[in-house]
Design a protein around this nucleic acid. Sequence first.
DNA 1: GTCTATATGATGATAGAC
DNA 2: GTCTATCATCATATAGAC
Lengths: 192, 192
Amino acid sequence: MSTSERLIESTRELLWERGYVGTSPKAIQQRAGAGQGSMYHHFTGKPDLALTAIRVTAQEMRDRAEEELSAPGTAFERVSAYLRRGRDVLRGCPIGRLTQDPDVVADPALRRPVDETFAWLRDRLADVLAEGRDRGELDAALDPVATASAVVAVLQGGYVLARAAGSAEPFEQAVDGVLGLLAARVVPTPSP
Amino acid sequence: MSTSERLIESTRELLWERGYVGTSPKAIQQRAGAGQGSMYHHFTGKPDLALTAIRVTAQEMRDRAEEELSAPGTAFERVSAYLRRGRDVLRGCPIGRLTQDPDVVADPALRRPVDETFAWLRDRLADVLAEGRDRGELDAALDPVATASAVVAVLQGGYVLARAAGSAEPFEQAVDGVLGLLAARVVPTPSP
DNA sequence: GTCTATATGATGATAGAC
DNA sequence: GTCTATCATCATATAGAC
């Protein structure tokens, strides 16, 4: 891995662990095993490096979600697989946590990839739900867009509850809760 | 307001706006109109002041929630009133945002009031839902604990989505989504 | 490309006068 | 109780040698 790549990886880790405000150039350099000169040669400063790191993490998150959401199965099965995928819950969401960073939210360039990631995710989930509804798998009265937003919110809020509790349990309960509600909207298949 | 109270209020505001890591003693003092000596006379340091501030905010949040959840009405009406209460969505939740602060989560004393607040809220919502189920207002198969966790998670996640988007819209959609799912579990009242 | 100075201001606190 | 030094360290760079 090149010095530039190591700097990006270090920044990705630190942004996840400590956020933008809590991450110093010095800490990035130390974790990457690089000096000050290297960092300021490859990047104009902390915002530039952070933007690069955020973009990589955002792309990774989209790719991972697309895997589950484009898999075969009913809409309910795919949403369920996405929500129940193994996660290191107590670490939280590397993109969602950035929304609590005042300097990220205040800078349009830094906020943009965060915004786009969640917008894409809600749209993608809404598509899956709308498809399930149109196929007759889900209740015709289900609102795909609102439900998709609720599903993404449960994930992000689940992380918050888990970190507050110091345990993954509230996250799992919240996922159980929303899937339980959604399951009640699944149209029963006529027996063969 | 005494100097001590002004210091607490300033800390509450700054913790909400910038988090624990992003809040400096100097900023607290300036906003409170107090000198260094005053702050270190009344409090042992930043953690002590933050703990006091967090406790006040947590109590305020519980009192406010209790108002809506103990109001008259069906379980669905009370949960709905709680979720739809007017909120300054883009500011986020003053307690939930602390879960993204590494120094808060790492310090058991600071994390405790955050943990207790969410534990209380989930329990209280679960009580309301269980009561509604036992009264026959809600489907007997509804899981009160899991559903309560999902409701709180939608709120916390809604803030995340709203701050990412720079708009309250995703928050409102998420609330619509979970209430739409819950409404489908309301047992129809027999017409008189 | 990487390194070592060097610089300005902030951070989080202590000491002691008033 | 409040104020003004004073302090060591960190944050975020820039300059210039190698």
